[in-house]
Design a protein around this nucleic acid. Structure first.
Lengths: 214, 214
DNA sequence: AGTATATCCGAATGATATTCGGAAAGTATT
DNA sequence: AATACTTTCCGAATATCATTCGGATATACT
């Protein structure tokens, strides 16, 4: 039957991916050999090439799957949440949770992907852009509704937001996830949002004006 | 004479480093071969091993030299600058300038270093910590003098500052330095500092109170 | 059963990092 | 200047690893 055939193929492919994911995340891309991966996946090195074009293809497949799943999930998660600040908060908490749930994927994305010389030309990159593109919309919207300061440059705000987010995630990964990613997340978020809302009409904590500069 | 001997050795070593730096930055670590490097440096592959233990050692040497030089320079640059905000500003502008001056070093640090499985155990890492450690002191000092908000957590502030800084640098490197790193730097800095000073006694732009929350 | 197709593997192949043994060049000592 | 010593270098192995080839084995379909 075609279905079970497809399933068998998919299941082997998954075994290879899981093996590669674990090994890449543990030893890094360079130190992991095809022999390692195929042994872990329970087939020969030659057979692996029936499923993937090569080592680099295998590396890129892992984050590709993850990021596609993230995009799929993101819209659903933000659905129905009103207000730029609320949406930003949801975005950050959602992303951190996804990272905590899939640390191996995250490690590969954050530590081994940019390394690749032509990361920019890759499918993954354009998907990451989609993922981060949502933030631009949120900042735009917040500016229009005056929830955020009207002179806020969305791209700059996004740089701060993503930069901070990626930094705390990278630190957490490099330190072997020895603590919770959510430690201090509240304070970090408040500090950032404070920068985005200052001078807006309804900052967090109730209506209040920013500093007057007469 | 011992001096000229040392010089000859150093000069060859430098030729190798410069060749490796250019090639790594251009093609990435994996795609660059020892044959490439030694050809570019004008000696045999075997001779290269008289100067470096191997390819990885060569990779790590490059950022090591750069970061040591940065540490050496940083103290000098901050010397005599008063006030947390002024010191933060100097830090950011100084670092961006150094990155713009040595884009190859920066590319290797930001794109190829963290990928190394044991980056955390490396000499470079502890030096980067020194470099970033200065920021903690600046935030501490600013909090004590009330120039920054008294409830500011230095580590969180540093995460935002470094995260943002590294992000705009990484973007700039990935986009092949097609624009100036200083574009929007002013606005980015102001936005961040706004978050750090809100509620402090003397925010930028003159004395003013943060929002009252009665 | 028989044929086609998918899946697999042992054994080459080729590229590349690293080592070995010794040559060539330079330096110091007499 | 000749000798001994040290540094610097390289051609030729060696070892590791990614990838390919040719064919074997299992599975699906008629």
């Amino acid at each position: 039957m075609a279905a079970s055939l497809k399933n068998r193929k998919e299941s082997t492919k998954n075994r290879i991916i899981e093996a590669a994911k674990a090994l890449f995340a543990d030893q890094g891309y360079t130190k992991t050999t095809i022999a390692d991966i195929s042994r872990q996946a329970g087939l020969s090195e030659a057979a692996l090439y029936e499923y993937f074009q090569g080592k680099e293809d295998l590396l890129l497949t892992i984050p590709d799957l993850w990021v596609c799943d993230l995009i799929e999930d993101l819209e659903r998660q933000l659905f129905g949440i009103k207000g730029a600040v609320n949406r930003l908060r949801k975005y950050l908490w959602w992303y951190c949770r996804r990272v905590e749930e899939s640390p191996l994927d995250a490690k590969i994305v954050y530590l081994f992907l940019k390394t690749n010389a032509n990361f920019m030309q890759t499918e993954v990159y354009s998907n990451v852009k989609v993922l981060y593109g949502y933030l631009l919309e949120i900042f735009e919207e917040g500016r229009r509704t005056k929830e955020l300061r009207p002179d806020l440059d969305p791209r700059i705000a996004r740089n701060i937001f993503i930069g901070t987010m990626e930094h705390i995630i990278t630190l957490w990964l490099l330190r072997d996830r020895a603590y919770s990613l959510f430690e201090n997340l509240e304070e970090t978020f408040d500090l950032m949002v404070g920068a985005f809302t200052r001078g807006a009409e309804t900052p967090r904590g109730g209506p209040a004006k920013g500093p007057d500069i007469h």
